[in-house]
């Protein structure tokens, strides 16, 4: 049965990946290039330390022609969707389906929301998305550690939220009450955020551009999760579950025939 779940997760993931790959191709590649130019142009005018470290940071640049970079980035977008689909809508959904609040489609959108908080939302609280062309002040290793840590914290908080919802609804709390109470654990993310070092950035990208850039990143990831959940809903309910015992037997036979 887990095989059919992972298969469906991969299907949803390829749809989401194609959508996000398209997003990278049409918006991501040109926008990142443009913002980077802005940063470079301003940095060169100043010859500041930031510009120097920016130059060092992009020492690898120029190794590859722009077309290759763009193509690999689009491919990265496709694989990103595929990975999230397989992990969250394949494996995680298989194991946690009985525990996720809601019924049918709601379950998938709840999972998508939890996935967004885990993979993007929580890490962004400490390390907000930076436009290309600005240099983060924290060293790379520190950022990777905080990124991983916030990912785990996000997952833990989402699990806790699910647990709270389940406990309350088992005790007969009405749905709106349980929903609001389940959102409370998300506030726990404030603790690591306060403890985290400030993630400053040096660069010459205008504030409006940085804000627009953040909107673009958030919109891209939110859309990706929405597409993943919607395609997963569209794929329907796995045969093994609806048909119960009989369907399970058939699936076993199919699995062993593979």
């Amino acid at each position: 049965m887990i095989r059919s779940y992972v298969e469906r997760g991969l299907l949803a993931g390829s749809a989401g990946g194609l959508a996000f790959g398209l997003f990278v191709a049409l918006v991501g590649n040109p926008l990142v290039g443009y913002v980077e130019e802005l940063g470079h142009a301003a940095g060169e005018g100043q010859h500041s330390g930031a510009a120097a470290s920016e130059a060092a940071h992009h020492a690898g640049e120029g190794l590859l022609p722009g077309a290759v970079t763009s193509a690999v980035s689009v491919g990265g977008g496709v694989f990103w969707g595929l990975l999230l689909g397989a992990v969250f809508f394949g494996v995680v959904y298989y194991f946690l389906e009985p525990a996720i609040p809601g019924e049918g489609a709601t379950k998938r959108y709840v999972l998508a929301g939890a996935g967004f908080v885990t993979v993007s939302g929580a890490p962004w609280l400490v390390l907000p998305p930076q436009p290309a062309g600005v240099e983060a002040t924290l060293p790379t290793e520190t950022r990777i550690l905080w990124y991983g840590g916030m990912l785990l914290a996000g997952a833990a908080v989402c699990l806790l939220a699910g647990l709270v919802y389940r406990r309350l609804s088992l005790r007969g709390a009405r749905r709106p009450v349980a929903t609001v109470a389940a959102l409370a654990p998300l506030a726990l993310l404030a603790i690591p955020v306060v403890a985290a070092p400030a993630a400053g950035a040096t660069g010459e990208v205008p504030a409006e551009m940085a804000l627009a850039y953040r909107g673009f990143v958030v919109f891209g990831q939110a859309t990706l999760w929405f597409v993943l959940a919607s395609v997963h809903v569209w794929l329907g309910v796995p045969t093994g579950r609806l048909a119960g015992e009989a369907g399970h037997g058939i699936e076993r036979a199919a699995d062993s025939a593979e």
Binding site: F20, G33, V68, S73, P131, V217
Partner: peptide, 18 residues
């Protein structure tokens, strides 16, 4: 460097900050 460079646009588009 090669992978970093090639995935640069993707990582910025997806908000991956590492």
């Amino acid at each position: 460097p090669l992978a970093h460079d090639a995935l640069h646009n993707f990582r910025h588009s997806a908000g991956i900050t590492c």
